[in-house]
Amino acid sequence: MEYLNQILLSDEITWETALARFLISFFLGTLVGLERETHNQPAGLRTHILISIGSTMVMLISIFIPQTFTEFQNGDPGRIAAQVISGIGFLGAGAIMKFGANVRGLTTAASIWVMAAVGLAVGAGMYTVSLIGVTVVLFALTAMDLFEKTFFKERTLRRIELTVKKKHSKIQPVNDVLKRMDVHVSSVGFDRNVNEATDKLTFLVGVTRKMDIQQLVELLEQLPGTVSVSVEIIQ
Rank of each mutant, 00 (worst) to 15 (best):
M1A: 06
N5W: 11
Q6L: 13
S10N: 11
S10K: 02
T14F: 14
T14Y: 10
E16V: 02
T17K: 01
A20D: 04
F22W: 10
F22E: 11
I24P: 07
S25W: 08
F27R: 00
L28K: 11
G29C: 05
T30P: 02
V32K: 11
G33Y: 03
G33N: 03
L34W: 15
L34T: 11
L34V: 10
R36Q: 04
T38L: 10
H39N: 11
Q41V: 06
Q41G: 01
L45E: 04
I49V: 15
I49F: 12
I51C: 09
I51F: 02
S52V: 05
S52D: 10
S52W: 09
S55Y: 06
M57W: 02
M59K: 10
T68W: 07
F69E: 06
T70P: 09
T70V: 08
E71R: 06
E71M: 14
F72S: 15
Q73A: 15
N74F: 03
D76R: 01
D76Y: 07
P77H: 01
G78K: 08
I80L: 15
I80H: 08
I80R: 00
A82S: 15
V84K: 04
V84R: 10
G87P: 11
G89Y: 04
L91R: 08
A93K: 10
A93G: 14
G94R: 13
I96H: 10
K98S: 02
F99N: 14
G100P: 00
A101G: 03
N102T: 13
V103P: 00
G105W: 04
G105Y: 03
A110E: 00
A110C: 10
A110G: 07
I112F: 01
W113S: 12
V114H: 09
V114R: 09
V114K: 08
M115D: 07
M115Y: 09
A117E: 12
G119I: 03
L120R: 08
L120F: 12
V122T: 15
M126S: 01
M126H: 09
Y127L: 11
S130A: 12
S130T: 02
I132G: 14
V134F: 07
A140N: 07
L141N: 13
L141M: 11
T142D: 13
A143L: 14
D145V: 05
E148W: 00
E148P: 04
K149M: 11
F151R: 04
F151I: 07
F152A: 09
K153A: 07
L157G: 14
L157S: 14
I160F: 14
E161V: 13
E161Y: 13
E161G: 06
L162F: 13
K166V: 06
K166T: 08
K170H: 15
P173F: 02
V183A: 04
H184P: 01
S187K: 14
V188L: 15
V188K: 07
G189C: 07
F190K: 03
D191E: 15
R192G: 05
N193P: 05
V194T: 05
E196F: 03
A197V: 04
V207Y: 01
K210M: 14
I213A: 03
Q214K: 11
Q215F: 08
E218T: 08
E218Y: 07
E218R: 10
L220S: 03
L220Q: 01
E221N: 15
Q222L: 06
L223N: 13
T226H: 06
T226P: 00
T226Y: 08
V227G: 11
V229F: 12
V229H: 12
S230G: 07
V231R: 01
Q235E: 15
